[in-house]
Write a protein that binds this DNA or RNA. Structure first.
Length: 579
RNA sequence: CGGGAUGUAGCUCAGCCUGGCAGAGCGCUGGCUUUGGGAGCCAGAAGUCGCAGGUUCAAAUCCUGUCAUCCCGACCA
């Protein structure tokens, strides 16, 4: 493609609305343009990259045995009512009524396609002989994000590859899941991304029934803990910590229990400021309503309670923060002054609680806290639990080594669904004994835009983007330095047609611009291989070839240049595949 | 939905406090020169100062409302 004939509006300055690197660079490199919050046009260069990523996804899906189909984005709201997800999605589900003759039809724009695909299979699958089956599609999804942000990382309309597996038993589900998991690893590595498969919320099936594929990036929305030693990684909410119950005994040097006035100080922050202490010295006493029973949960002041873990330890159906009335009843104090000393309900504590010597807690009395609170003497614990979110430095549950906190961009998710949708939408099959069973399903998503955005986010330098060959909009950027120089143009035109003939994706910068201008644009858009034809070099019979990441170009005789380019591309392709 | 910020030329921004001709750089158009890391000179085009209302002789500037965008939080397949 000739640059002069395509449409690549690069920007010298960074638009003020863009904050994260991917957004800034994609805008500046002319890959995208914003229409409104959460909706972007993919410009020719950006769309080429997107389509290359899409092609890799498609290839690997097919290699894994999945079959491509294409479902409607417009869906009847009825399907979401039957699965209960109209309420579950709430505002996120874009839905509206349209007039059709004398009827009103209530439609939704698909945020995902479990309903549609399950409905499809409920009609199309009758027998166990038709299973297992995995289908996929690559299609635009719609979600009314309450807050679209980070440019193209979180949008209300996005390209997603979604696959769904159908099987008769757990072995078939495991096989499909494993096939998808492996395909995802290949996809992300072929796209040149470093990725971490992360254990995620596993739902009703339990075990390792769900993984998210995270691209580590400082601006990622998700926080995960990661053990470098053994590779264990999990969502902050999901992650176990390898901590154990410490000895529960009163410290020998414990100070006296004292009540101090803390007027209006109801938060950890306020109390720590008023009493001039660290939040880690404090015990947060949260009163939860676990089903019908109020329970006090003790968490260190600087930690975050994890309601999922609390619910599991209490074996409760539901856990939520208690009402002010309940708190008043249990603690005898208004909200913000609860503490374990003399409280009148069940108390459970996190592992980190009993080791706090001379802790500070609420006094179960308005405007007052205790200092010098010590386990065994002032309050009693039988044992302790893992009740909080994991934090940097926590020991890994597998290796015991300290874990690090990593921010990540969620680019893929594999999930064992079980029979949730097949039951509610009546997708059954008959087994060999003519017995009816719900089909066992799995679902597997990849955000294709996020592959591109993650690359922009993580693969760049101060001059611009750096594409891997596999996803780059073009593989080679051919630059004649002076289009008024006949000799330069003769050689360049010749290269251009030879490259096209060789099947190389080449962008030909035939614009009437000064060399500096072209070099700056070249670095900005980050095409992997740059071939420069200039008057000076030609006098010695040389052209310059350089990877985007190289410091200096290699000078090559004109008649060897094509061979060199082909060889360099071939080698790089092999390296990227082999990763 | 709560908190914060910003809306002035295609882009980056000044002007607003203290009301009085609508500004600069980049980009764009034409011309000449230049041609190895975002060129120089000359001449131009380009704005409903987000929108609506109010105060005033007079509003980009002050007041009220509203919309949009960005950031933090809440929420989130």
């Amino acid at each position: 493609m000739r640059w002069s004939k395509t449409f690549i509006p690069t920007l010298k300055e960074t638009p003020s609305d863009a904050e994260v690197p991917s957004h800034q660079l994609m805008l500046r490199a002319g890959l995208i343009r914003q229409l409104m919050a959460g909706a972007y046009t993919y410009m020719p260069l950006g769309y080429r990259a997107l389509r290359k990523a899409e092609a890799i996804v498609r290839e690997e899906m097919e290699r894994a045995g999945a079959i491509e189909l294409f479902m409607p984005a417009l869906q009847p709201i009825d399907l979401f009512e039957r699965t209960g997800r109209k309420d579950a999605f709430g505002n996120v589900l874009i839905n509206f009524e349209v007039q059709r003759g004398d009827k009103k039809v209530h439609l939704a724009l698909g945020p995902t396609h479990e309903e549609v695909v399950t409905d499809l299979m409920s009609h199309a699958i009758n027998s166990y002989r038709q299973l297992p089956l995995t289908v996929f599609q690559i299609q635009t999804k719609f979600r009314n994000e309450e807050r679209p942000r980070f440019g193209v990382l979180r949008t209300s309309e996005f390209l997603m590859k979604d696959a769904y597996s159908f099987g008769t038993n757990l072995e078939q589900l495991d096989d499909a899941y494993q096939a998808m998991y492996n395909a995802y690893c290949r996809i992300f590595s072929r796209c040149g991304l470093t990725y971490i498969p992360v254990e995620a919320e596993s739902g009703p099936i339990g075990g390792d029934a769900s993984h998210e594929f995270m691209i580590p990036a400082p601006n990622g929305e998700d926080r995960i803990v990661h053990c470098k030693a053994c590779g264990y990684a999990a969502n902050l909410e999901r992650a176990d910590t390898g901590r154990e119950t410490p000895p529960i005994e009163t410290a020998a040097n414990a100070s006296e229990l004292k009540k101090v006035d803390t007027p209006d100080a109801t938060s950890i922050e306020q109390v720590s400021k008023m009493l001039d202490c660290e939040p880690s010295q404090m015990i947060k006493t949260l009163i939860y309503q676990a089903d019908d029973e109020p329970v006090a949960v003790l968490i260190r002041g600087d930690h975050e309670a994890n309601e999922g873990k609390i619910r599991r330890e209490l074996e409760a159906e539901s856990v939520e923060l208690a009402t002010p009335e309940t708190i008043q009843k249990v603690t005898g104090a208004p909200v913000g002054f609860a503490g374990p000393v003399g409280i009148s309900c069940k108390v459970i504590a996190d592992h980190d609680i009993p080791v706090i010597v001379d802790a500070i807690t609420g006094a179960n009395e308005g405007d007052a806290h205790y200092t010098g609170v010590n386990v065994g003497r002032d309050y009693q614990l039988d044992t302790t639990f893992d009740l909080r979110n994991a934090a940097a430095g926590d020991p890994c549950p597998k290796s015991g080594e300290p874990m690090e906190l990593v921010h990540g961009i969620e680019c893929g998710h594999v999930f064992k669904l079980g029979t949730k949708y097949s039951v509610s939408l009546g997708a059954d099959y008959l087994d060999e004994k003519e017995k009816r069973h719900p089909i066992i399903m799995g679902c597997y998503g990849i955000g294709v835009n996020r592959i591109i955005a993650s690359l922009a986010e993580t693969s760049n330098d101060e001059n611009g983007l750096i594409w891997p060959l596999a996803v780059a909009p073009y593989e080679v950027l051919l630059i004649p330095l002076n289009i008024n120089d006949e000799e330069v143009m003769k050689v360049s035109d010749n290269f251009y047609s030879q490259m096209q003939d060789a099947g190389i994706d080449v962008l030909y910068d035939d614009r009437k611009q000064r060399p500096g201008f072209k070099f700056k644009d070249a670095d900005l858009i980050g095409i992997p291989l740059r071939v420069v034809v200039g008057g000076k070099g030609l006098k010695e019979g040389l052209v310059e070839i350089k990877w985007r990441t190289d410091g200096d170009p290699t000078k090559v005789p004109v008649d060897e240049a094509m061979d060199t380019v082909n060889a360099m591309l071939a080698q790089r392709r092999e390296e990227e595949e082999g990763e």
